[in-house]
Each structure stands twice: as C-alpha cells, then as structure tokens.
Design a protein around this nucleic acid. Structure first.
Lengths: 236, 236
DNA sequence: CGTCCGCTTGAATAGTGTCAAGGTGGGTGG
DNA sequence: CCACCCACCTTGACACTATTCAAGCGGACG
C-alpha cells in the first residue's frame, strides 16, 4: 500500500527477570495468572519478563521460532508484507493479548511485530506452554480464547477500519484507540500519522487533512500532553 | 457499506443422515477423519450431515447456539453487520473449513453465514466435540489449526482485499476464488456482482466496470458455462 | 541558530460513488 | 413457440473523495 519510511529499531530488549505470575498486577487478564508456585517447579524453562523500547521489533514475518508473548503493558502493531511489497498494519494489540500463537502450530510468524510504546511482555517457549497445558486443561481454554480475541479484532479491522469513507474510518480508529488505551476519559494518544494512516489504508496527507477537519469542527481538542487529544463525539 | 438487496432464503436444510467419517471422501482435510467406528459408540449425540440450498442461511450473527459446522463441499460467505447498519462480507470459506467455532467458547455467533453454492456440511454439537477432544488430544490440535486457518484468511482479507486500488483488489479476489474453487485450470466461477463487490468494499458499478476492462484487455474470457471465466494473468 | 523530521497545505489529477437509464438472458405463462 | 418479465449486469454523466507531488511550516534537538 505505502512504502516503508520509518524503519524499525533492532534494540535488544531488557531482561526484567523471571515472571512472577502469582503476583502479577493484571492477573485477571493474563495468560498465566492462576499458576501456583508449585507449577513452576517442574517446567523445563522459565517464563521470562522483558521490556522493549518503542519501535523495537519482537519478531519478523516469516521467522521460525518457538516463542509466544503475552503483553503486560504497552501496544504493538502487527504488520503484514505482501509478496508484491505492499505493507499494511493488520492489527493492534494491547495488554492481555497473546502474540505469536501460530508458533504453537510450528508455523512461521505471519507478521512483523513492533512496539508502538514502551512494552512489557512475558515470553514463554511453546514446549513449556504445551507442557503446562497437559496438566491444566483451563490453560487450553485460555489459548482458545486468545485465538478468538485475535479473530474478533481482525474482523473488526475489516468492517470498521477498511470499509466506508476515510472520514468514518478515522473516527472508528479513534474510538478503537480509546478502547485499547482505556485512559478513563475520552482521551486518545496519537502515534505517528504514517502508522495511523497505514491502519486505515489511507495516505498520510488524507489522514492529516481529516484530523485537521475534526479539530476545526471542535470534535478533537488538544490536551496538556501534545500527543494526546480529547475526542468529543461518540456519534456519526 | 452497501444496503442489503438480496435477502437470504430460510429454506430448511436437507438431512442426509449421520456422518460417516470413516469413509468420508475428503478425510484428509476434514475435522473428524481419524475417528474410528468405536469412537462413535460412546458419544452423546451423533454428527449429522446436511445439505443446504444456495442462499440458505446456516445461522445468523448474534444467535447463541451450540453447533459447529464442517464444510464438505460448497462455499459460504461470512457477513458482519455493524451497529450502524453497514454490511461487509469478511470471509469466504470452502471445503475443510470449520465454522461457528466461537460456539466452543459459549459465545454468540459473530457472523451471519450464507451458502453461496449448494452446500454439504457436517454438524456437531459443542458438547460432543468437547467430549471427543477429552479422549483424543489430536482433535484439540485440529481445532487450533482451524482457528489459525480462519485468522490467516482474515489477515489476507485485510491486506489483499481491503487495500490498494479497486483494480488490484478485483485481481486478488479472482486469484483468491480460483484458489478456493481449485478447479484445476485457471477458471473462476462468478457469484452475483453484488456479493463480489461487497467482498472488496466496492460498489456494484465499479466492480462491473473493472470486470469489463479485464474482458477488453483479454485477461478474462468466457467459457462454455456463462458463470465461469478463464483468467490469464498471474502477474501484476 | 540551523537542521531534521514529521505534520500541514495547495493544486492538479486520478479514482470511486451515485443516480439514472438502458440492455441482456433465462424463466414463465399464455 | 413466442412474448413478456424480472433480476441482474452495463453504461454514461456528474459529483465527490482520495492520491500525488510539491512546497511550506514548526517544534525538538544538537
């Protein structure tokens, strides 16, 4: 669709230690909350906790690896490159999401995944996950729920962010971002316009113009933080 | 996106009997090939085989049911309706596909599913499937593979059929249909233009014009069957 | 203070949607 | 067997939407 302009950084992630699932602050949404200390006793390899910088790449499309990631905080974009070179962002995932699940089926990663913000993830090897699953049937159900979550997002991406006029897509995108960033009030944190445009399949210029219109109409207003805007429409 | 024009038929499917998985002609791709006679002995409810007429509806978005379908032959469209009334076809599935998997998680169906051709499906209740899974771990793996298949299709739908110019989308759509219908040679069976247009997010007129252009350029030519065209380009 | 990067804006142009009219083919009933 | 009908596809004219190329602007940062 558009040519790549911003290149991903290949900074190494920072290792934060082994995961402490039992005391995870966001247990309710995470994959491995529910695991007891004793469960960690007999697993082959540990679950590790990493921090990635903004724009760092977790893995790239086509790579074959055996690692699955669970997001604790931050946001990532999933990018798909076609054989003919066109690029499109196909998904945005945040806290609670499980990425790279295709590795469980021994498939190569189908996307390039890049952090949009500072990112805190737990990483687990597929063998370890399968080993845990064998003991705990509920883990299996959780994995399925994550497939379903991914699929639901993909379908919304098609019907909300890839259909209709560019204006309606921008509005839906802003809603979508608010939902992901769930910053209490109706505030949206912006990324680069190039990324946002790529999410809805528009050019940077078109996106910029529409944002400009929304500002003029008073639907979008600045906040203290220059990256964050307040959105005042739920309608249209 | 577009207003519905062709309404779905609510004809009842024809019951063809209980499924005979062991002798299924397309065992290799089907969900339940691999089951032995003895496996059928102790399941709660049978797996049934049905035939649906073209345009018949299997189930509709929002409905809550406990049935999963495995396609033996034919093609279905998965339609998603937004709260604001816009409609978009988000997926096309053929032989081997498993539809309504969200029922396994006790979720309501997320799409309305309609047969595009005469359809032959096997229907199984979720309890039965779960019961079988408990015995046979390999079934579990198969279910995962179907989640992955759905997700792969969804992602292709985004990057191939929802990005770029309408012309490129039409070409990709034709490729896609050839792949699904795998009619040996490079022949494509057309559906109604309204449906095809809805797949790529175009108007009927735009779609018609592009098909017209392709005919003029000689890339697309008629065959004996007026519904089937021969496509002569793999490139661009 | 100047540079760089990313956002904004303008003008020209190509691409799509919309409305409306006209064509075509397959099926039905006389 | 023919005439008619209906559903569906085609075509034209026009308005509108979005892309492209190009120039300008503004803030962050060395």
């Amino acid at each position: 669709m558009t040519k790549p302009r911003t290149r991903a950084l290949c900074t190494d992630p920072q290792w934060l230690g082994r995961a402490d699932c039992k005391h995870c602050g966001i247990r309710h949404m995470m994959m491995f909350s529910g695991l007891k200390d004793s469960d960690f006793g007999h697993i082959l390899e540990p679950i590790d906790n990493f921090r990635y910088a903004e724009k760092a790449m977790l893995y790239s499309q086509g790579a074959q690896d055996d690692k699955v990631y669970s997001i604790r905080s931050g946001l990532v974009k999933l990018i798909q490159t076609e054989p003919d070179g066109t690029i499109r962002i196909v998904r945005l995932l945040g806290p609670g999401a499980l990425i790279g699940i295709e590795a469980l089926l021994n498939k190569a990663y189908r996307h390039t995944v890049i952090a949009l913000q500072e990112l805190d993830v737990c990483r687990i090897r597929t063998v370890t996950l399968k080993q845990l699953e064998a003991d705990k049937p509920w883990l299996n159900e959780k994995v399925m729920a994550h497939w379903e979550q991914n699929l639901t997002f993909a379908d919304r991406w098609i019907s909300e962010l890839s259909s209709g006029t560019m204006r309606s897509r921008v509005l839906k995108l802003l809603d979508f971002l608010m939902e992901l960033q769930c910053d209490e009030s109706s505030n949206v944190r912006f990324f680069g316009y190039e990324d946002m445009a790529m999410m809805i399949g528009a050019s940077r210029e078109t996106f910029s113009r529409i944002i400009g219109d929304l500002k003029d109409e008073g639907l979008l207003s600045k906040t203290e933080d220059s990256q964050v805007y307040r959105l005042s429409s739920l309608n249209e």
